[in-house]
Amino acid sequence: MKNWLRQHALCLAATLGRLTRTPLASLLNVGVIGVALALPLAFYVVLANVQGCARANAPTPQLSLFLKIDAPAAAAREIEARLKKHEGIAKYRFIARDQALADLKASTGLADVIASLNRNPLPDGFVVDAKENSAAVLEKLRDEFKAWPGVEHVQLDSAWARRLDATLHLGRLIVLGLAALLAFALVAVTFNTIRLQMLTQRAEIEVAKMIGATNPFVRRPFLYYGALTGLLGAAVGWGIVWGGLRLLNDRLAGLGQLYDAQLRLTHLSLPDTLSLCLFAATLGWLGAWLSASRNLAELEE
C-alpha cells in the first residue's frame, strides 16, 4: 500500500516535471482544452443566471379555487381545513363572496352595473400559493383540487411557467449537446497528445517493458498527464469565463444604473466548479488511457 502510494507520488512528480520540460507544447495543449471548455461553460453560466433571475422575478403563478355558488359555509370550512393540512401549499387566502363583490365594485368602476344586480353572482373562493412553482406541480395540484367536493372550478395560469420551463429545458439541452461535443474534443486532443508522446518515448517504453515494467507502470505517467492537462484546461476555461464576466459586469453595471436596476452575472458556484474540474480531469484521463492502452497493445504484437 505504501509502495503503491509512493509509486503514484513519484509518478505525479515526474508528470509535473514533464509538463514543465516542454512548456510550450503543454501550454498550447492546456490552452486548446481551455478554449474548447470556455464556450459551453459560458453558455451554462448565462443560462444559470437567466434561470435564477427568471425564478426570482417571475410573478408567482397562483391557483384560484372557486366553490359552487350555493355552497354552504361548512363546505368552505372543510376546504380550508384540507388546504391547511396540504403539504404542497405555501399559503392560501379565503375570499368570501361578499368581499369579492366589494373588491370588484371598488376596483373596476363597475359600481352601477353591480348595484343593478339583484344577487351576488360571485362564489366563495381561495387563492393558493404552492410551495413549488413548476408547471407540472401546479397542474397536479389543480387536478387534485378539482376532485374535492364543493369545488366548482380551479383556475391556473400556468402558461408563463410552462414557457419558462420549456425555454430553460431547451437551454439545458444545448448545454448538454455542447458538453458532449466538448467531451469528445477533449478525449480526442489527449488521445493524440499521448500518442505523440509515446512515439517519442518508444525506446524508453520498449526497454522498460523488456526489463520487467508492467503495462500499468508504463501507462501511469501518461494517465497523470492526461488528467492534469484536463484539469489545467478546466482552470483556463474557468478563467476565460471569469474574465468575460468581469468585462460584461462592468458594462451591465452602467446599464443597470440607467434602468435603476441591479444587473450582475454571477460565475459558477463552487459545486459546479468542482464538477467541471472532475469532468475535465476524468475525460483527459480517459483519452490518455485509450491512447496508451492502444499503443501498448501495438507494442505487444
Binding site: 525506446a203 520498449e206 526497454v207 517493458k209 523488456m210 526489463i211 520487467g212 515494467a213 508492467t214 503495462n215 507502470f217 505487444e300
Partner: peptide, 19 residues
C-alpha cells in the same frame, strides 16, 4: 501476459545494442 513482467525481473539484461 500480465505475469511476464515479474518473470523478467529475475534477469539483468545487457543488450547487444545497449539500449
Amino acid at each position: 501476459a500480465s505475469a511476464l513482467p515479474f518473470v523478467r525481473r529475475n534477469f539483468g539484461l545487457m543488450f547487444q545494442d545497449h539500449k
